[in-house]
């Protein structure tokens, strides 16, 4: 599905008057190859004649120096330095609403291409990815260790001062309010719902098998270490329980 690297990447044409230090050409090519070798690339980029419908409908373009059309053009024209520059900041402006993809007459997916660029930024541990993701680490810790991305105890006035002084309009302890929710799975505070121990181990296995933990290690080593400790413990818990079951069955 993907094209061979050598046929795709041309000798790069840099900006002759740029004062920026040139990034090593091989590195630029490696980055582009990582983006375009994803099997989604040729689904998401079919051509572009600069009609601008993507930017017209882009929420991020209203507030940032960001244009999905520009991103598509950089990839389509294989502007390796431009791609690298965009990955320093611009790609993180995209709100991932995929309105661009729903509108493009070529059926490109600029939002999807942004994800390929973000994945590549993470793979190479780019500084932009690290700094952008620092505030996101709470979500990732929760997700990777429990299988839930968000939990009631993450939403406090300390973390969201702009959401107002009260998280609940009934003044009572969080634990009690959660207990009063008439769904037994939701009587939790540390996860959005009660996640079966076996389930979180299964999810963790998926993380291991799909290289997600490697991504995490590249971006945030401390977070990675914390998660590995938590999950090792959980695995032991499950193994203990399984042993108990066997014992019971033997009896």
């Amino acid at each position: 599905m993907s094209h061979s690297h050598s046929s795709r990447v041309q000798k790069h044409i840099g900006d002759p008057i740029s004062e920026k230090p040139a990034v090593d050409q091989e590195f630029l090519e490696e980055i582009f190859n990582d983006i375009q070798s994803d099997f989604r690339f040729d689904h998401e980029l079919n051509g572009c004649l600069n009609c601008g419908i993507c930017t017209a409908t882009c929420p991020a373009a209203h507030y940032y120096d960001f244009s999905p059309r520009e991103m598509v053009q950089l990839l389509w024209t294989e502007n390796l330095e431009g791609i690298y520059d965009a990955m320093q900041e611009k790609i993180w402006a995209c709100a991932q609403c995929y309105t661009c993809a729903a509108r493009c007459p070529f059926k490109n997916s600029p939002g999807g291409l942004i994800m390929l660029m973000r994945e590549t930024a993470i793979k190479h541990g780019m500084e932009s990815a690290k700094s952008v993701l620092r505030p996101f680490s709470r979500v990732m810790l929760k997700l990777i260790s429990t299988g839930n991305q968000l939990a009631p105890d993450m939403i406090t006035p300390d973390h969201f001062p702009d959401w107002g002084p009260n998280i609940s309009k009934v003044d009572a302890p969080l634990k009690l309010l959660r207990k009063a929710i008439p769904m037994a799975t939701l009587n939790t505070t540390a996860t959005a719902w009660e996640v079966n121990l076996k389930t979180s181990i299964e999810l963790y296995t998926i993380w291991e098998e799909t290289g997600v933990l490697d991504q995490l290690e590249t971006i945030d080593e401390n977070l990675f270490d914390v998660i590995v400790d938590i999950m090792d413990e959980k695995r032991e818990d499950l193994e203990d329980w399984e042993d108990e079951q066997e014992d019971e069955n033997d009896e």
Binding site: D38, F39, R40, Q96, M115, R118, E119, A121, I122, A129, L133, F136, V139, M140, L143, G147, N148, Q149, L150, M183, A184, T185, A192, W193, E194, V195, N196, K198, T199, S200, E202, L203, I206, W207, T210, G211, V212, Q215, L216, I219
Partner: peptide
Amino acid sequence: DETDQTSCTAWNYHGSGIGNMVS
């Protein structure tokens, strides 16, 4: 309504880029 289910993980994926099509 049961406990053997996880989030789809897509919020995290679209937000952070951590994850991939296989995961």
